[in-house]
Design a protein around this nucleic acid. Structure first.
Lengths: 240, 240
DNA sequence: TTGCATTGTAACTCAATTCGTTACAACAAA
DNA sequence: TTTGTTGTAACGAATTGAGTTACAATGCAA
């Protein structure tokens, strides 16, 4: 029994038993409840209701008899329907949400983002709004390669790094920080939790974004106060 | 609080509280935890972990403070990501399942289908395989309108119905059954459960499909035995 | 027919998740 | 000091799915 298939089907709304039974049945073509049970490990006394549920959900067909025979509906068809249903649901939700979404976005000048995806999303957004000048500090080339396309579009791009060697293959021109500047960025303990900064970007001297780990959680902080951006820029310039 | 939005978001993997909080936050733009709680009805003492979860899932951003402020990530972006993830999952599952699917399909000549969608799927399949002749009996025009496109493609199409009036607007030419023939199809009680037949189709005198309700459940039976199809055809012809 | 294994149903326990509530610590304002 | 707000932690109830037990019904072989 392939663990991945079961995992995939569970994400799409089946239970573990349903996923196992369906995947097994796809592989067997035609089978009795007992045969499915023996191959997929679902308890025999439960396989009957599971197969019945799968029937009601349109995943399997059957011939009544003694024993009753079952077979899977063609997986491409089933999956196609599933996709149509989910996409329809997403489209509906999107338009419903957008119709609620009256308020303009971004009155507060400081925002934090916690999720991995959310951070990427914000960085994309941030980079797309750079007009003239972008200053980047980072300690690993990951950020650069991850957002290569957006970064290449920026005209006034300056990148400073802690050690140049790490960035040789990145395809970007980088400057190395002055000796001693790393104290601004090295890991620090605040209130007993370890914080480390992975990257800092300043756009047009107006807004900035700090990406790092605080108390073990990845976090990005977006600051749109020119004052702060200017301060950060001053620190920055002292570093070369 | 719109019930539909919450329902939609739940289908997409959020819990009730998460869905309510997110939808509310989309409508509010920027708000404190308390404000979200007051508008969406999630208990105040729970709103904090809910918003934190939403943060980790990439649905909301926040500014720490007293009070902490929250706002929803743009719904179109969030939904787009969700769609990409689900579609990727479906595509992966489809190819994994198809790689298991060695067995040819359809050695047993009789199959039952329980789900609404499964029935439609089988009818489509059934109609697509008609070569010369298709005989249809039905008692409501729904089936005809539902599969209008496929039916129009069939050359040797004959439709018989119980009462012609019902089918005037269907766009199909129909014949009316002889008086007394309805006894073959009228609701009957077998083993204490009420069975009724909505439709019967016979393709090329080879295979047939019966659609009806048995013990309160919609059910289709596909039979690929020429004998049975012939018998059904004989009954059929006696009806005009 | 009797005995026995298989088929199928129904109910239960257990564990995880989510809902909804309670208690309380930290803090700020009056 | 009192009061109210913010935020955390934990608990009990309800629901769901996983895994088990008991048993009736069916078919089969001696």
């Amino acid at each position: 029994m392939q663990e991945e298939i079961v995992e995939g089907l569970r994400k799409l709304g089946l239970t573990e038993y349903e996923a196992k039974a369906y995947a097994t049945l796809v592989g067997m073509g035609e089978a009795t409840a007992r045969e499915v049970h023996e191959l997929c490990g679902v308890p025999r006394t439960r396989i009957y209701d599971i197969l019945r549920d799968l029937g009601s959900k349109g995943f399997v067909e059957f011939v009544q008899g003694s024993p009753t025979y079952y077979r899977a509906v063609e997986p491409d068809r089933v999956m196609e329907r599933l996709r149509d249903e989910l996409v329809a649901c997403i489209d509906r939700s999107t338009s419903e949400l957008l119709s609620l979404n009256l308020e303009a976005h971004g009155s507060s000048p400081v925002w934090c983002v916690r999720s991995e995806w959310g951070i990427k999303n914000r960085i994309r957004d941030f980079l797309s709004k750079v007009e003239q000048e972008l200053i980047v500090f980072c300690r690993s080339p990951d950020l650069l390669t991850e957002h290569r396309a957006e970064l290449k579009k920026v005209v006034g791009l300056q990148i400073k790094v802690d050690r140049k060697e790490k960035f040789e293959d990145s395809g970007f021109e980088v400057l190395e920080m002055r000796e001693g500047s790393e104290r601004f960025f090295k890991d620090s303990i605040i209130d007993g939790s370890r914080n480390s900064i992975d990257a800092l970007m300043i756009a047009d001297g107006r807004s900035s974004i700090v990406i790092g780990t605080m108390s073990g959680e990845k976090l990005a902080i977006i600051i749109k106060l020119p004052v702060i951006a200017m301060l950060q820029k001053a620190v920055w310039e002292s570093m070369v």
